[in-house]
Design a protein around this nucleic acid. Structure first.
Lengths: 136, 136
DNA sequence: AGATGTTTGGTACTTTAGTATGAGGCCGAT
DNA sequence: ATCGGCCTCATACTAAAGTACCAAACATCT
């Protein structure tokens, strides 16, 4: 947001500068009109591309923002979320247990709770639902 | 590619038109210089945004092209691929069987073959590996 | 201190998933 | 027509996954 304001401020300022330059060059006579126009065209062309790149990169980042709210809304605890991430990586309960230094029983408990909270019947479905909610 | 050429052609033509208009208005006297410059700025600003949007939309489509080659490289048959897609949607073997009008035994065979071809130990891992290969 | 919620773990059980093996039918290439 | 690859299905297993229920340890908030 702050960057957008900054960019537009620069745009206005540059417009003002161009006005001055163009008038100055006209008064001094002869400095080609085409040159000034071409410069303006190129500058704003580049600025247009730059602005657009920023706005189109956002969607990729937004997905990282949405999740936290949903996770809380679904009442998924931090430990459960860790397990969910491990599941999405294709790990078995035993592997998850080893990774988190827990017993397989604990993982099963977490998985069971996850399935209820995500309204899923299987871990594969849980992953799919989680991705739909953009929490993965 | 053809569109890009067309757009740039239009750009060059519009630049030429602007040259004419600016000179014409200056000869006729007084028509404000600032107005012409602002128009130029806006036009090229918009064109810049348009061009960039086209080029940034491509990456989303590329991912759809990669898969077919990989699927063949991994020797995954069409039926197996159907099963793989169903797995990624979180369906159980029984559900997949009903969806494809097959017996659960057949699905199990397909899944087993898939796991070997994808070098996975579990269906969840298969999904993950498949997405890494961008065949899902 | 007591209530609450998270994390951890266990037992016992049912249900899926996955493996191994065999086999019949189908289709395209040789 | 025979061969190979694919699809189909079955049986008999073993191994995971998942459910239900319980319970202790812990932190936090009141």
């Amino acid at each position: 947001m702050k960057k957008t304001i900054l960019v537009f401020t620069l745009l206005i300022v540059s417009l003002y500068i161009i006005f001055r330059i163009s008038k100055y060059s006209l008064i001094l006579g002869g400095t080609s009109m085409e040159f000034v126009i071409t410069i303006i065209a190129i500058v704003f062309f580049i600025v247009g591309i730059y602005i657009n790149k920023k706005s189109l990169h956002k969607p990729q980042n937004i997905s990282k923002d949405i999740n936290h709210k949903k996770i809380k809304a679904l009442e998924i605890t931090s430990r459960e979320y860790e397990v969910l991430q491990a599941i999405s990586k294709g790990l078995s309960n035993k592997e998850i247990a080893e990774k988190l230094f827990l017993s397989e029983s604990t993982i099963k408990t977490h998985v069971s709770n996850l399935l209820v909270k995500l309204n899923a019947k299987r871990r594969t479905q849980a992953v799919q639902i989680a991705k739909d909610h953009k929490i993965l």
